[in-house]
Simulated scan of single mutants.
Amino acid sequence: PGRRVPLAGHTFGWSFSPDRARLVLGTDGSAEVRLVDLRRWRVLGDVQVPMAAPGSVLATAWAGATRALAVVVSPGCCGLGDTTVAGIDARRPRLLWQRRLGGSLQAGERFRHSLVLVLGPPGRRLGSSRLVLIGPDGRIRSAPLLEIRSGSQPVGDRQSGRFLLHEWNPGLAVDPSGARAFVVQAGAPVAEVDLRTLRVRYHTLSEPISLLGRLHDWLEPPAMAKAQEGPNREALWLGHGLLAVTGTDTHASVSAGGREAQWDTPAGLKLIDTRNWSARTLDSRATRAVFLSGTLLSFGFVWDSRNQTMSGSGLTGYTIDGSRRFHLYGDDPISGVQPLGKRIIVGGAAGSRIFGRGALLDARTGRELRRVDWNISLLVGDEPFWY
C-alpha cells in the first residue's frame, strides 16, 4: 500500500515547500495547520491559529524554506466570513504572527514569498473590493478596487428561510514576472494592479466580460425562497501578455405557487491580450479552464433545476494563441481536470461517458492513455485557492 502519514482532518489548502521536502495542510473548522516531513514521512507538528469563532484554512503558501503562510476564514465557508492570515515557523512549528484583514475572501494567488488576496465587504454585504498584499513578515499593503463588485448579501425574509442570496465572486490572476495582478468581474472593466506600487488601472475590453442574462432582485419578498444568484469569474495568466477568463452566472426564480428554481449559464472562455486589451471568445459554453504544457483546456458543466438536467461542452484544448488543438467527449459535462506532470486526469459529471472512471490524457495532444479511478485527491502541486 506504500508509505502513509496521518492527516487527521488536515485536508485543506495544502502547499509544498520550495524543495518539496515538506507539506503544509489545514483543517476545515478548527483553524489548525499541520506540517509534514515528506523525506522522513512523519508529522512535524500542528499549529493552532487562535480565532474568536470556528475557522477554516482555505489556502497556504510558503514564504521561503522555513516559513509558511495560512489563510483562515471564520466562519469558514463560501467567502462569507472574516479573513485572517497567519505566519508559521516551519522549523519548529509555531505561530509567529497573525493579521486580521477585515473582509470576506473572494480570490487569492501565491506571489513570490507573499500572498495576493481579493477581499469583499465583511459579513453578508455586497460592495466594492480591495486587493491586499501580505508579505512573509506580516506586512500588509492594500489598494481599493472600486469598480470590482464582490460579496454576498441576502434579500428577503431570512427568518422563514425564504430569501435570495446574491453572490458576486471576481476572478484573480497574477503575472509573476511582470509583478501585476488582474482582477475581473462580470460587467466591469479589468483591474490591473502593479504589485510593486499598488497602482490600479482599469481597462475596457474590445469584447466585454458580460453578464449573461439578467440578474435581478425578486419583486415579491414574501414569495422568495432560499436560492443563489450572481456571477462567478475565474482568471488564468498564460504568459506572453495573455489572460484567460471564464466562469458562470447563476440565476434564480420562484413561481406563483412558491416553487423555487435555480440554473446556471456559462460565461464562456475569453482570451484577453493585455498588450492592447483586445478580447475574443474561444468557447461560449465553457465554465472552467486549466493551463498546462502550453495547452489551454476548457470544460465544465451547468445545472438547471427547472428540468433537472446537467449539460456541458466536453473537453477542448487550445494553443496559447487560441487555435483549437483537440476536442473530446462531445457535449458531456466535465466535472474536473487534475494536472499530473504533462498529463491530466479528466473526470466526468453524471451523464458523461467518463462518469465514475476518469481518463488519463496527454495534455498537449488530448490522446487518451487509459482509464483511472476518479475518487481520490492527488497532491501533485499546491491546491488552488477556493472560497
Rank of each mutant, 00 (worst) to 15 (best):
D373K: 01
L271G: 04
G151M: 08
L69K: 02
L369M: 12
S104T: 14
G103W: 03
F111G: 01
R180H: 14
V85L: 08
S56M: 07
S253K: 04
W263A: 10
R201G: 08
V36W: 01
G156R: 01
L215K: 04
A65D: 15
G381A: 13
G45R: 09
S114Q: 14
Q228P: 00
L219V: 09
R306H: 05
A252D: 10
E368V: 15
L198D: 10
R149D: 10
T204R: 12
Q98I: 07
Y318F: 15
E383N: 10
T287D: 02
I320Y: 03
A86Y: 11
R285N: 12
R125Q: 14
A225N: 09
F326H: 08
L95C: 02
L38P: 07
G2C: 02
D194Q: 04
V49M: 03
G258L: 06
L146A: 14
W374S: 14
V302E: 09
R353T: 15
W14F: 13
I376F: 13
E229Y: 01
I334Y: 02
L126A: 06
G138V: 08
S253E: 14
D331S: 13
L96M: 12
D331A: 13
A252C: 10
L35P: 00
A363W: 06
R125W: 12
V33E: 01
A70F: 07
R162Y: 12
L96P: 00
G178Y: 04
N307M: 08
A90E: 10
F111V: 03
P231L: 04
V200D: 03
S114M: 07
V254T: 14
V290F: 02
T265W: 08
V302K: 04
V337M: 00
D321G: 13
E220A: 12
A70H: 03
